[in-house]
Design a protein around this nucleic acid. Structure first.
Length: 370
DNA sequence: AGCCTTTGACCAGCG
DNA sequence: TCGCTGGTCAAAGGC
């Protein structure tokens, strides 16, 4: 909160009298800010292309990172709070009734208070992972993550990387960052079986991929009529660093208690199942994929809709499609991301755009029972 | 016995 | 054509 309040006070003594929209407008007045945010909030591939160029400019160019050309541009080692659901613009978020509400949030904490907490956590988390983040941005993260904030890398140590719009290919890469002690991986994503998403997987291969720190494991869905595959990269300590889903389940997730027992966390299985349930009975020619965010400490309890937020192409991200379908007729400004089915809570996603930091904060409002 | 993981070999795409 | 790389196959072994 100190960071936020300081920023506002330093940049505008009258900030107390200004709305976030006004602040945003001011931030966006900067060409850097504009160029920085466009790729983040747009699915335009052109923006991504531009971002690539920007990255080269930032990095001095010529960095031959094999991942730069990979279609899945979502690999960003970022603190958990920065997951940004697709289809949301800063203005949309800032126009959110919940966000603009100056009163108490329905869950007993004002958004300002929540924002303060989340922001503080974000800053702390980012500080802890900065080294890894920077490393990843060079060696693992697609260029798309950096160019969105062209001036950030050089201006501050607290620069943020934003998720990149959905790639043109139907593969979603889902990185995870469990390096910080206060954001331990979800048990089901930790050592042992691949990320428990409610389906059964059989490992059919493992390969040490060039440029990747960790070996990549290949899994197939064990369902006889399902050809979904996924690739999992796991660090030496068993923590999942990245999951790539390929394909689309054409069956219900097995309703096995064993699965729940294995993970010891039914909510996660439910989470995965929910996401996959959204995939069912959808006929798509394209290979679809979806993602499970494992690095969002809040998302460990969150709805799949939010988990898919790293991607912004609902045409290929089914879980997200589920959201879009539900909110299709709802004004964008009222969009929010609901929690688990039995939870009345929802997520507000707030973008904070500073001249040097672009942060998305997710405020998770649980139902009273949780 | 069945299913799983492991792991070296093989294959295809690309420069 | 050759080498590199990512993805897959399939035999072997474990549970």
């Amino acid at each position: 909160m100190t960071l936020v309040s300081n920023f506002f006070s330093e940049n505008d003594p009258d900030s107390a009298c200004r709305s976030f929209s006004q602040l945003l407008a001011g931030a966006m007045a900067s060409p850097a800010a504009i160029s920085a945010q466009r790729p983040s909030f747009s699915a335009l591939s052109a923006a991504e292309n531009g971002s690539m160029k920007n990255k080269e400019a930032i990095d001095g160019g010529g960095e031959d990172d094999f991942r730069l050309n990979r279609p899945s541009g979502l690999v960003i080692a970022q603190p958990p709070m920065f997951t940004i659901p697709p289809g949301l613009s800063p203005a949309t978020l800032l126009d959110s009734p919940g966000f603009l509400s100056s009163g108490q949030a329905p869950f007993g904490m004002s958004h300002q208070q929540t924002l303060a907490q989340v922001t503080a956590q974000a800053v702390q988390a980012h500080t802890q992972t900065q080294i890894q983040t920077e490393y990843t941005s060079l060696s693992a993260a697609p260029a798309a993550s950096l160019p969105q904030i062209p001036s950030f890398t050089s201006n501050t140590a607290t620069h943020q990387q934003m998720p990149q719009p959905m790639q043109e290919h139907n593969v979603v890469k889902e990185p995870s960052d469990f390096s910080h002690s206060d954001q331990r991986p979800h048990p089901s994503f930790a050592i042992g079986k691949p990320a428990d998403d409610g389906y059964n997987w059989r490992k059919y291969g493992q390969k040490q991929v060039k440029g990747s720190e960790y070996p990549r494991s290949y899994y197939k869905c064990t369902h006889p009529k399902c050809s979904v595959k996924k690739q999992v990269e796991r660090s030496v300590d068993g923590q999942v660093t990245e999951i790539i889903y390929k394909g689309q389940h054409n069956h219900q997730p097995p309703q096995s208690n064993k699965r729940v027992k294995d993970t010891g966390n039914p909510s996660n299985s439910e989470l995965g199942s929910e996401a996959h349930a959204g995939n069912l009975n959808k006929s798509k020619e394209v290979v679809s994929s979806y993602s499970l965010s494992m690095k969002d400490q809040e998302s460990s309890q969150a709805a799949p809709e939010q988990l898919s937020g790293l991607s912004d192409s609902e045409e290929v991200v089914d879980a997200e499609t589920k959201v879009d379908e539900r909110d299709e007729d709802e004004p964008e400004s009222k969009r929010r991301f609901s929690c688990l089915p039995n939870c009345e809570g929802f997520h507000h996603v707030i973008f904070l755009i500073y001249p040097i930091i672009l942060i998305a904060v997710i405020i998770h409002a649980h139902c009273a029972g949780t």
